[in-house]
Amino acid sequence: MPRPARPTDSAERLVFFTDAVVAIALTLLVLPLVDLVPEASRSGLDLGDLLRENVSELGSFLLSFVVIFRFWWSHHQLFRHVSGLSPSLVRWNLLWLLSIVFLPWPTAIITAYDTSPLTVLLYSGTLVVSTGSLTALAVVVHRDPALSAGRDRETRDEVLGIGSSFAVLIVALVLGTTFADTVNYWALLLLFATGPVERLLRWRWSKRPERPDDRPPETDADVR
């Protein structure tokens, strides 16, 4: 049975801390690009050559920037339902933050090294850890009503929305590492399939008997 949140365990400080760490991670992504400018200037490269020779660096920066922003937005939407804290919530949030802070490193690696199963595994695996820990956060919030005291509870559909991204990224990880010579990072385009996967999971979940905790709280009108 989930441990109830204590009234003094406000989620606001955790949210502020998380937002600050995500902002730092986004800043770290651009630092390698900034370092390229003085090096190019000293070597006599004009701006056009600088851009052409670093297309992969720019592409990986934009990819990781969008990924981190998307993950942060999902985290933000989830914590709209959270008013209190529990040990499991804090632990899963810490793992999620670790994956976000770590992401600039595999981003730098995929531009510095040739594509291989290991580079794909490192980058895609980081995304799997991030979505997996975010899914675990969603499950914790959904199962423990005390965490949403005074706020709207998270719905099953919202849990499925996050979990479908996790499922799709696991498939992308397997395909990308298995076929690193051809598919590699293109497997991440499977994220566009999140919608159909979410609908499939929602259909399968609808066949399960409803848990008491999944029902919305009764109002006085319902009782009458």
Rank of each mutant, 00 (worst) to 15 (best):
M1A: 14
R3E: 15
R3V: 15
P4F: 02
P4M: 03
R6F: 07
P7I: 02
S10D: 12
R13M: 11
D19C: 12
A20T: 09
V21D: 06
V22L: 09
A25E: 08
A25Q: 01
V30S: 03
L31R: 00
L33S: 05
V34K: 08
D35W: 13
D35P: 04
P38M: 00
S43D: 13
S43Q: 12
D46H: 08
D46P: 02
D49P: 00
L51F: 15
R52D: 14
E53V: 03
E53R: 14
E53K: 11
E53C: 00
S56G: 13
E57K: 13
G59E: 04
F61T: 10
F65M: 03
F65L: 10
V66H: 08
V66C: 06
F69Q: 03
W72S: 00
W72K: 01
F79Y: 12
R80L: 15
L85M: 12
L85R: 08
L85T: 07
S86H: 00
P87W: 04
S88A: 14
R91N: 08
W92Q: 12
W92V: 13
W96K: 07
I100E: 08
F102I: 04
L103K: 09
T107Y: 12
A108Q: 12
I109C: 00
I109E: 06
T111G: 15
Y113K: 00
D114P: 06
T115L: 10
L118F: 11
L118C: 06
V120F: 00
V120K: 03
V120T: 00
V120P: 03
S124A: 10
G125Y: 02
V128Y: 05
G132E: 10
S133P: 09
S133W: 11
L137R: 02
A138Q: 02
D144K: 06
A146Q: 13
L147I: 07
G150P: 13
G150T: 11
T155Q: 11
T155R: 12
D157Y: 15
E158T: 07
E158A: 10
L160Y: 03
L160M: 05
I162N: 08
I162P: 06
G163T: 05
G163Y: 02
S164K: 03
S165A: 10
A167E: 07
V168W: 04
V168G: 00
I170W: 05
A172K: 01
L175G: 01
G176E: 11
T177S: 14
F179Q: 09
A180N: 07
A180G: 08
D181P: 09
N184M: 11
Y185C: 05
W186L: 14
W186E: 06
L190A: 05
L190Y: 05
T194K: 12
T194W: 15
G195N: 14
G195Q: 14
P196H: 01
P196G: 06
V197G: 05
L200S: 09
L201F: 13
W203E: 04
W203K: 03
R204V: 05
R204Q: 06
K207G: 11
K207L: 14
R208E: 15
P209Y: 09
E210N: 07
P212S: 09
D214R: 10
R215C: 01
R215P: 00
P217Y: 06
P217L: 11
A221G: 04
V223N: 02
